[in-house]
């Protein structure tokens, strides 16, 4: 079925593999960056306004329950934010990454020992000082753990982005599926898995360093 030698196959696809890996990384990093920029401040804000809790966490929870394949599909017909291409993909990936980041930021800050928070306030820290000097440093390991889960998941989900024309390593997988070419599927799947492992390892290392 695959008369072509493996070396030749890889050499032939090397330039595209490089490009697709780049796309894949870019989609993932952009989505995680945006999700962190929204999720961490929102998670902290929710600890300040308990009434937001149900809405913010509820929304993120609901998004998480939508099958990722369907989420990409839903975005295609939506004007402005949707359509075909990288923009829709990044939006879907961001929504998907939001829950673990938001929830861990919220739990991390809320989990700070109440007596520590109480002394900080009693010593005349402003809310901003309490957050910056005490709560965020103590919540940092949990926040990083949320980023890690979100990133590892996102690397995998990004393969689906190829379906709506956003590129990435998923392109090989879908082409492979359509042409019943196992090598092409693996050419997408293996690097994607390696990226996920690398992200897991790197962020896990950062987490341990911070927790000390």
């Amino acid at each position: 079925m695959n008369p072509q030698p493996l070396g030749e196959f890889l050499a032939l696809h090397a330039p595209e593999l490089l490009r697709r890996t780049g796309e894949h990384l870019w989609l993932t990093l952009l989505a995680i960056g945006i999700a962190a920029a929204i999720g961490i401040p929102l998670g902290v804000a929710v600890t300040r306004r308990p009434r937001l809790e149900r809405w913010a966490l509820g929304f993120a929870n609901v998004v998480q329950t939508i099958p990722s394949l369907a989420l990409f599909g839903f975005l295609i017909p939506i004007p402005l934010i949707g359509g075909i291409g990288a923009r829709s993909a990044v939006i879907a990936l961001t929504l998907y990454a939001l829950l673990p980041i938001l929830r861990n930021a919220y739990e991390g800050v809320r989990g700070v020992d109440p007596s520590v928070r109480e002394s900080a306030l009693a010593m005349g820290m402003t809310d901003w000082q309490l957050l910056r000097l005490v709560e965020l440093p103590l919540a940092a390991p949990l926040i990083l753990a949320g980023l890690r889960v979100a990133t590892v998941t996102c690397v995998g989900v990004t393969t689906i982005a190829a379906l709506i024309g956003a590129g990435g390593l998923g392109t090989f997988i879908f082409t492979g599926l359509q042409t019943v070419n196992a090598r092409l599927i693996l050419l997408g799947a293996v690097p994607s898995a390696l990226l996920a492992l690398a992200a897991d390892f790197g962020l896990g290392w950062a987490e341990r360093r911070i927790a000390r």
Binding site: S115, V116, R117, E118, S119, A122, M123, L133, L138
Partner: peptide, 10 residues
């Protein structure tokens, strides 16, 4: 202010 749990910054 001193409390029973001390509340030192860990």
């Amino acid at each position: 202010y001193v409390i029973q749990e001390v509340g030192l910054f860990p």
